[in-house]
Lab assay of single mutants.
Amino acid sequence: GIQEIVAMSPELDTYSITKRVKEVLTDNNLGQRLFGESILGLTQGSVSDLLSRPKPWHKLSLKGREPFVRMQLWLNDPHNVEKLRDMKK
């Protein structure tokens, strides 16, 4: 599951990941809330907090790293936007 992926993950640049996620969401007119609930399993508040103030990787616990790994996996998925759009319906 995701825990193994997080444990094996190389250090991620949390700042550039969140910046990229925000760009993709904005460009495709997708909400942070939808993204947070569907992709990260987080509430709106947690998501906007994460996206606006990402902590550096080395300061995060494994649990804290999980959303960033999920974001990275989502960014790597060529169908990420379509999938999210489908969830919106």
Results as ranks from 00 to 15, higher is better:
W57S: 01
N80K: 09
H79N: 13
L34W: 08
D77S: 05
R70T: 05
E11V: 13
E37T: 11
V24A: 08
L84S: 02
L25M: 02
H58V: 11
L12D: 02
E37R: 07
G64V: 05
Q32D: 13
K83I: 12
R85V: 12
I5L: 14
L73S: 09
R70G: 00
T14G: 01
R33K: 15
L40A: 02
E82Q: 13
Q32N: 10
S46W: 05
M8T: 11
R53T: 13
L60D: 06
L51T: 01
I5W: 10
M87H: 11
G45A: 14
E4C: 04
K55C: 15
S48W: 13
S9D: 07
L50V: 14
E37V: 07
Q3T: 10
H79G: 13
L34P: 03
R85P: 01
S38A: 11
N29K: 14
L62S: 11
D49S: 11
K59E: 12
L40G: 00
I5S: 12
V81W: 04
V69Q: 08
E4D: 11
S52N: 15
V47F: 15
N29G: 13
W74V: 01
R85H: 08
Q3A: 08
F68G: 03
T14Y: 00
R20E: 07
Q3S: 15
V21M: 03
E4W: 04
T18Q: 04
S52W: 04
T26S: 13
R85A: 11
V6M: 09
K89R: 08
M71F: 03
K22E: 08
V69M: 11
L73Q: 15
R53I: 09
L42A: 09
R33H: 12
G45P: 14
M71K: 03
K89W: 06
L73H: 13
K89M: 15
V6F: 07
E23P: 01
S46C: 11
P67V: 06
K19C: 07
T14D: 01
T26G: 09
R53D: 15
I17M: 03
L62M: 15
L25V: 00
S46A: 13
I39G: 02
R53H: 15
K55M: 14
N76T: 07
P54Q: 04
D86P: 11
V47A: 09
D86K: 13
E4M: 06
L42V: 14
G45R: 11
H58T: 06
R85C: 10
P54T: 03
Y15F: 15
S9V: 08
Q44K: 14
S61E: 06
E11A: 12
G36F: 07
T26L: 11
E11I: 05
D86S: 13
L34F: 11
L73R: 10
K59I: 08
F35S: 01
W74G: 01
E4I: 04
Q72V: 04
R20D: 05
S48Y: 07
R20N: 08
L40K: 00
P78H: 08
H58W: 10
S48V: 10
E66R: 05
V47E: 07
R85I: 14
S52F: 06
L62W: 08
I17S: 00
L25Q: 00
T18P: 00
L50N: 02
A7V: 08
N29S: 07
S61G: 12
T14Q: 02
G45D: 15
K63T: 09
P56L: 04
M8H: 09
L34K: 11
Q3C: 08
K55T: 12
T18K: 00
S48G: 14
M8Q: 15
Q44W: 11
D13P: 01
L75N: 02
N80F: 04
S46H: 08
P10H: 10
W57M: 00
R20V: 03
S16W: 12
T14R: 02
L34Y: 08
Q72D: 10
G31S: 15
L60M: 03
R33G: 14
I39Q: 03
K88L: 05
T43D: 14
R20T: 07
G1H: 06
T43E: 14
T14N: 01
P78D: 07
Y15L: 12
R53M: 08
L12F: 06
R70E: 04
R33E: 10
